[in-house]
Design a protein around this nucleic acid. Structure first.
Length: 896
DNA sequence: AGCTCCACTTAGCAATTGACTG
DNA sequence: CAGTCAATTGCTAAGTGGAGCT
């Protein structure tokens, strides 16, 4: 079956759809594009400017104005910012949650028109008290979610603290790290900087570089060592500035007053130098990046399409060496599976406008259906979402419809909604047979579309289904939420397969946009999505050889970092004292990335949610406390990271870092970049000089895996029964998730199931009490004269009691586990950050079946590690002596 | 020398499945 | 066996970072 249906886009609806689409969509598309272009032109530029401007404006007039205009919009950002200011956690937490939830809708509107305003708004919003207004509003709309969220956050914070405690007491991951750093720094000699700087400019970097090819991953030790030596030498400080280390270390964190800040800095840098810093700043190179950039940025977009083909297409054929060794199929393949055609609503399911029944054209109806399905979702309470939806929906309407339908509040989608709800019900209530049939059908689909041939290996494809049309659901306060994601037709899809393979046939009556044979990339098909203009790819499954190899390389890179990390830490500590602002910023940022596992923080466009990472932190995202809760030099981080997940953390940092942060914040306002002389390219360039192939994200992988290894070593008890060992594993895993800030919404049924568990615990306790009573009695009986029988009875009871206690223990343990896991997601780190060989080795070492740690898909994904790692494997140990070929060739794969 | 674009990894939530319980 | 709820799978958005263009 496979061959034939290749492109079978399910015939029926296709035509109708294609027609419909032509009308509505093409329209929409072009409009859209224009729209975008405009934005783009201004985006970057404005953004930068705005930020700066903000400063100026800040204080003055705008605030009020902005406030008004943005009052509804700002939601979360504002809140967040406000919160930051107010240290009142509890309260702020609640609010924040809301924000997170994505209620921040307001902004979006603005963005569309006045980008520049946005920034202003941001700043203003923060500063003001709009919060309140917002809050109220938000509350109404999102109460439930908000609640949930806030709970979540609270608990999160709690957890975090808890965790910290744990850490310090039980394993003290963080501490250890810090320690390490300290010690290394103490040996450090001064001058490295200088050397380093020199080198930077012309030669490579002090910390040797080295080509990072795959072979590198298998570098032998000797190699490594020698490299290290080199780097050390290079780094060796030349001994110049007297003040350096000793002094620093000497005056440790004493209790200097605020003014000391200066002194402090001075001790690092002579006054003259300091001035220097400033001056330099002002001059050329020391100008904040934003300023430099500002003036340049321009439009982008537009071109897109054209180039894709020329340059790369068919790039060097033989390029086996190229990293993505790809090579699509040889036999016939069906190509990607197109989305199912739209099935029109039954005629009795009606749409009402302004109270009156209104018949919709098929396309308008389809889009109405997208919205109707979401009627109960929070999204539909957001203004941005609704207005984006209306805009796009109207684009697909007939002119007549468009004339009538102008106000979403007059739209009544409830029948349509009810219809889809019913459909869901029906689906749930399918009979066994139906389910089975459906399942088989699905498997057949996978069998047909889910595989491809690469280098004559049959490999599973990850996402062979083209994304169906729908409404764009951005995360957080996304300005484009609610926009229509249009249906992708074969004419939009580019196929990438090897030259000698049979070209997949497009669905009947259709053509592919293009068929190419580019061996330098791994995707099999791609298309451009209309909402954000991004390319979407059909790629291989995680269990495929290709992905496995890359995964392995990733961890080898992290292990390589382990061998250099001491030096790198030394280096950045040294750089904290640099005369150059940009160096200091780079060093402090790197410290955050290393210590806190922050993401790099690329710059973002204005038409995306406002989230940040390390390099893009703004002034309002951290607050500094000389002393907080008994800790010195505390930095409080509070910002929205990837996926608009809040990152909240109070960290005690080293004095020098603290002082530097104060310096970085000087003369800046909310909305300004904290690291205004740094961005991810600069940082990564520096990292690459320190170690070939090193980038910011390697630190996350490294610290995550290292934490797992350390935690496992620490927490696992040889004699523990299996469940306890598994619990230890989960705890170690959790420590990582916490480090990486991997969150999840608390399960909806969390409270309930927690209560259930608690009840079990109570019951068990009762049972134990009872048994204890019995036990005592038996004991008496057994002692006083007791017969053999009585004695035996007593013993038996005693054992039963033990067992019960064990069970209780276990229950309590799992309750703890559960509670701790409430808002923590373990899966992300397990899947993306933890060297699977650590887990596999642990399983082997302690006799734990791998299934206890990895489910079926995970085992497939990590098959390479399961095959490769022995009980002795240690992430921080010496590299294994294996070549990638060993792995690559042998086993593998799910040949069906 | 910066910027854009492209490719690919990482991410949380939704939908579905499956295990467990009464 | 039905009903629950946790676990797993699916989906696709949102990051990172290199390459190539201007």
């Amino acid at each position: 079956m496979s061959e034939t249906e290749d492109f079978n886009l399910s015939g029926g609806g296709t035509e109708a759809i294609s027609n419909g689409m032509t009308n509505g969509i093409s329209n929409g598309t072009s409009e859209h594009r224009e729209h975008k272009e405009h934005k783009h032109k201004h985006k970057d530029k404005d953004r930068e400017k705005d930020r700066h401007r903000d400063k100026d404006r800040h204080k003055s007039s705008h605030k009020d104005k902005d406030r008004h205009s943005s009052s509804h919009k700002s939601s979360h950002k504002d809140k967040d910012r406000d919160k930051e200011r107010s240290k009142d956690k509890e309260q702020s937490d609640k609010e924040r949650h809301k924000d997170k939830d994505r209620e921040r809708s307001d902004k979006d509107k603005h963005r569309d028109k006045e980008r520049s305003d946005k920034d202003k708004h941001r700043d203003k919003d923060k500063e003001r008290s709009d919060k309140d207004k917002h809050r109220d509003k938000d509350r109404d709309k999102h109460r439930d979610k908000d609640k949930e969220r806030s709970d979540r956050e609270k608990s999160r914070d709690k957890d975090r603290h808890r965790d910290e405690k744990k850490h310090s007491s039980s394993n003290g991951e963080k501490k250890e790290r810090d320690k390490d750093r300290h010690s290394s720094s103490s040996h450090r000699s001064p001058h490295k900087d200088r050397d380093r700087e020199k080198h930077k400019d012309k030669e490579k970097s002090p910390l040797e570089p080295e080509p990072i090819k795959e072979e590198d991953m298998c570098i032998k030790e000797e190699q490594l060592e020698s490299e290290e030596e080199d780097k050390l030498v290079i780094n060796e400080p030349v001994k110049e500035e007297p003040m350096e280390e000793e002094e620093d270390e000497g005056l440790p964190v004493s209790k200097e007053e605020p003014e000391e800040q200066l002194d402090d800095d001075e001790d690092d840098i002579p006054l003259s130098h300091r001035t220097h810093i400033k001056e330099e700043d002002d001059e050329e190179d020391d100008k904040p990046l934003a300023i430099r950039k500002k003036e340049k940025k321009k439009v982008k977009k537009e071109k897109k399409e054209k180039k894709s083909r020329g340059s790369k297409l068919m790039s060097s054929p033989g390029s086996q060496s190229e990293s993505p060794t790809k090579k699509p199929k040889k036999e016939e393949e069906p190509g990607p599976l197109m989305a199912e055609a739209y099935v029109p609503l039954p005629s009795n399911v009606k749409f009402y406008y302004n109270g009156e029944h209104m018949h919709l054209s098929e396309e308008a109806e389809e889009v109405a259906g997208f919205y109707a399905r979401m009627l109960e979702h929070d999204y539909t309470t957001k203004e941005v979402f609704n207005s984006n939806f209306m805009k796009d929906w109207r684009k697909v309407m007939t002119s007549k419809e468009r004339e009538v339908i102008t106000d979403i509040s007059k739209c009544d989608f409830r029948r349509i909604h009810a219809y889809y709800v019913q459909q869901n019900e029906d689906r749930k209530n399918r009979s066994k047979e139906e389910r089975k049939a459906l399942k088989e059908k699905n498997e057949a689909l996978i069998a047909e579309y889910g595989w491809c041939n690469i280098d004559s290996h049959k490999q599973r494809i990850g996402n062979f289904k083209i994304e169906p049309p729908g409404l764009f659901r951005g995360r957080g306060e996304h300005p484009k939420q609610g926009m229509l994601k249009k249906r992708i037709m074969p004419e939009d899809v580019i196929i990438n397969c090897s030259k000698d393979s049979v070209i997949p046939k497009p669905p009947a009556g259709h053509k592919w946009k293009e068929v190419r044979a580019d061996p330098s990339v791994t995707w099999l098909a791609c298309w451009v999505e209309n909402v954000q203009g991004q390319t979407k790819y059909v790629m291989l499954n995680a269990a495929s050889k290709l992905k496995g190899e890359k995964d392995w390389q990733k961890y080898e890179m992290a292990r390589k970092l382990h061998r250099r990390v001491d030096n790198i830490r030394e280096q950045y500590r040294f750089d904290w004292k640099s005369k150059e602002m940009r160096i200091r910023q780079r060093a402090v940022a790197l410290y955050f990335i290393d210590k806190l596992a922050l993401r790099a923080g690329n710059e973002k466009d204005e038409d995306q949610a406002d989230t940040v990472g390390c390099c893009s932190l703004r002034v309002e995202h951290i607050s500094l406390h000389e002393e907080k809760d008994g800790k010195e030099y505390v930095v409080v981080f509070d910002f929205l990271g990837k996926d608009s997940i809040r990152y909240y953390n109070e960290e005690s940092v080293e004095r020098r870092v603290f002082k530097n942060l104060q310096l970085f914040k000087e003369n800046k306002e909310d909305g300004n970049d904290l690291f205004d002389r740094l961005n991810t390219q600069i940082l990564n360039k520096h990292l690459n000089e320190l170690m070939d192939g090193l980038t910011a994200k390697v630190f996350r992988t490294y610290n995550a895996s290292r934490t797992l290894q350390e935690q496992l070593d620490l927490l696992t008890n040889e004699e523990d029964p299996l469940p306890a060992k598994v619990l230890s594993y989960n705890r170690a895993n959790r420590a990582v998730a916490l480090l990486c800030n991997h969150q999840r919404a608390a399960p909806k049924t969390f409270d309930k199931s927690m209560a259930n568990l608690q009840k079990k615990i109570d019951d068990k306790k009762e049972q134990i009490e009872e048994t204890e009573r019995d036990c005592k009695q038996l004991k008496k009986a057994a002692k006083s004269g007791g017969s053999q029988k009585e004695k035996m009875g007593y013993e038996k009871k005693k054992k039963a009691l033990e067992r019960l206690k064990e069970q209780l223990e276990k229950l309590v343990l799992s309750a703890t586990d559960k509670e701790e896991n409430k808002t923590i997601a373990l899966g992300t780190s397990k899947l993306n950050y933890l060297d699977p060989r650590i887990s596999v080795a642990w399983c082997k070492k302690y006799g734990v079946p791998v299934e206890k740690v990895y489910n079926k898909t995970q085992r497939q994904k990590f098959q390479w590690a399961i095959d490769m790692a022995t009980a002795e494997y240690n992430f921080m140990g010496e590299p294994m002596n294996m070549s990638r070929n060993e792995y690559g060739d042998g086993e593998e794969e799910e040949d069906e």
